[in-house]
Design a protein around this nucleic acid. Structure first.
Lengths: 167, 167
DNA sequence: CTAAATTAAGTAACTGGTTACGCAAATGTA
DNA sequence: TACATTTGCGTAACCAGTTACTTAATTTAG
């Protein structure tokens, strides 16, 4: 692919060429590439996990038990996103739910024994992935910090609000 | 939402707390936020465009005429992604297609007169958006450059390949 | 010159998010 | 204490991408 582009003289990458106007699409393109590559990895290794499950596992390791809403708030995901992820993890036997007895609307989630056992198997893969992320960021030393600053700014006022103010 | 988190003492943002392990999810979260906010903006202003259309408009302004495959290569998107975007833009009357007469498989795409006329209307919105991106990146001076470096590395070897090598 | 391989582009099925909506439970208030 | 509001969470419909497959046209090779 890259060779094709080189041959075509298109190597400059149009999205990069677009500078600020191309940023949103580049972020999407990058996050999709990471997502599909991760799925591909898990599949090729026959691992019974999906991207993002590591977040839930970690969350429940650190907090013991949480509700859907707490998870959504903590991850800053919409709650239906968490519902979907958790539903699959439940189906695969990694998460148990229990109705909160002081508030019957709440589903208290926790890790099953199976989860604790399998985490040991998954861990090396997650760690290898983390290692790769570290490598990829090796000559981008400000990236994480500057990303956090961007997230912070967008939490204060989102893209739409900011753009409306410019018009 | 942010206030809720503050009240809950969850303000640290778990994904940031996860450091390298949280990066992929943060990129997804950020690009989704930008995407939906942009859609919301266009909708609220009654604009007959969607995110990414600016890319296609720009591409066809700079190259006059291109095929689906050329666009996909230039943007580094999959070709079905381009097919989908172009289909909608065609339906809305912004793109015309003509069969290449030296190669009947190819669809040569170009902007319609309507497109040229409406681009003038859309332009201020795109420019305001670009301005906002500039603002958001104002105290992240290395971000674009370091993002490019990351993209470059992942073009050389993707996440899966790199992770397999670590195992 | 014909058969095999490649290429262009459209379609189908899937994915991991989103917003919008509905219902039941809990909370606040007159 | 009852009624309005808020909250938790599940579902539906949508969205912008992906991979996998198909078909037709072109190119390559024997």
């Amino acid at each position: 692919m890259r060779n094709q582009l080189l041959n075509l003289g298109l190597m400059e990458d149009f999205l990069i060429h677009m500078e600020y106007e191309g940023l949103t699409s580049r972020l999407k393109r990058l996050s999709d590439a990471l997502l599909y590559s991760t799925k591909d990895l898990y599949k090729s290794k026959g691992l019974d996990i999906e991207p993002n499950w590591n977040l839930i596992f970690r969350l429940l390791q650190e907090h013991q038990a949480m509700t859907i809403t707490e998870m959504a708030d903590t991850l800053q995901f919409s709650h239906p996103a968490v519902v979907k992820i958790v539903k699959k993890m439940k189906r695969n036997g990694y998460i148990a739910t229990q109705e909160d007895d002081s508030d019957k609307r709440k589903q208290v989630l926790s890790l099953t024994p199976k989860a604790h056992k399998h985490i040991a198997v998954f861990k090396p893969y997650w760690e290898a992935g983390t290692e790769v992320t570290r490598d990829i960021l090796a000559d981008s030393p400000h990236f994480m910090e500057e990303l956090a600053r961007i997230e912070e700014k967008l939490n204060e006022a989102n893209y739409k609000e900011r753009t409306l103010k410019k018009l």
